[in-house]
Design a protein around this nucleic acid. Sequence first.
DNA 1: CCAAAAGCAAGTATAAATACCTGTATAAAA
DNA 2: TTTTATACAGGTATTTATACTTGCTTTTGG
Lengths: 223, 223
Amino acid sequence: MKKKITIGLVEDQLLFRNGIHAILSGWEDLEVIYESGDGYSVIESLQKSARIPDVMLVDLSLPPNGDKPYSGEQLTIDLADCFPEVKVLILSAHQDEKFIARLIEIGAHGYLVKDSDPVEVYQAITTVYEKGAYINHMTLMAIQRNIGKRTQSILQPTSDLTSRELEVLGLVCQQYTAEEIGEKLFISVKTVNGHRANLLLKTGSRNVAGLVMYALRNELVKF
Amino acid sequence: MKKKITIGLVEDQLLFRNGIHAILSGWEDLEVIYESGDGYSVIESLQKSARIPDVMLVDLSLPPNGDKPYSGEQLTIDLADCFPEVKVLILSAHQDEKFIARLIEIGAHGYLVKDSDPVEVYQAITTVYEKGAYINHMTLMAIQRNIGKRTQSILQPTSDLTSRELEVLGLVCQQYTAEEIGEKLFISVKTVNGHRANLLLKTGSRNVAGLVMYALRNELVKF
DNA sequence: CCAAAAGCAAGTATAAATACCTGTATAAAA
DNA sequence: TTTTATACAGGTATTTATACTTGCTTTTGG
């Protein structure tokens, strides 16, 4: 009997994870042996595990746990570091060239959008297992167009904001003016503006528009 | 033989849709008889179809097609209008109380987060089919806390923005000041501010923070 | 224990955004 | 044609945000 390709799934949405599991179970030469809903525990639990998956399907947008985000990007880096023999296939909702190039650069072996056909997922898994890479047309184009350019981390270097700053940032995103924020937090408008200034500095933004974009990108506020 | 509950799936991400299909196929009393990747065609194709699903699973965040958005919210309204006998179960990535209350109000028969257990999905389907509603604890709390409050449309009443306004909005989100936008578009700062004022009015925002949130929510600008 | 660093609060001056208003050109409706 | 509506451009006055600076307090590291 031919050896089955062992799969690991890292995806926060339980339904989606179960769905992929169900789909993959339709192929006899695949076997899902590991699942996780977040990125934190993956490295640790794999190190304790006796069976290391051949291929890991990793969701790009894993949710942060409390304050500390642990993205699919970070997991890819850590997997490449701790388990270089494991092939990493990124699953992403979006088809953004910068993301693709970035992820390939840091160690992913393939990139699939969540809009893919299940057959393509199967092909990607077998190809990445046999050949060590699965680069489809979209991915290739993205790589080609971004070779030479310095790629950008998706989560920008997590400029650590203080709790007070996070509080102010949240209220800014909810369209409160500095004065209203002051009232809510029982501090002077001037102080609020001080925090705003620090936020602009730390996030590298020019104005509130930048702050909101930053907050949403880093999932610091609800959509 | 007992009649199977017929299911319709409306979900843009192909993998996710196939995954749910695969999961639901595990229950013998369920049968998926309709699938769609967008909201547009649903009403029309159902009207032509001989078999109308008993239960429709609808993704809340269906993508816009070109300029015209057709959200799960709109589809819920239209389904309640054209097929009142069909039970609508909303699938959402987020657990936002305002969304939940709003959807129940406009005709949804249940609300599930994508983080749900497959068993819960099955229970929701059978319950909504037999009892006409599936309200779990989370949903009930959301309803209770929002009774009396006027609920807010998720896609706010699709304020159709002019091309010029969209242009300005995009630049606002990119952190350009009114003056810079004026230079880019070869118009006066005053004019730019005029467009901004209209944007604030149309989107129901108080300031740029609101504009950025609106733009991102409606996918008018890149993340 | 003391010095350095950093969070928090607050003030002044300037730049920018927001509210409110007017006019013109264009296109659809009466 | 005349009316009506609206996208677009521009203006003035006011409010709000941003830049820069200062002092107080807590925390950190030598």
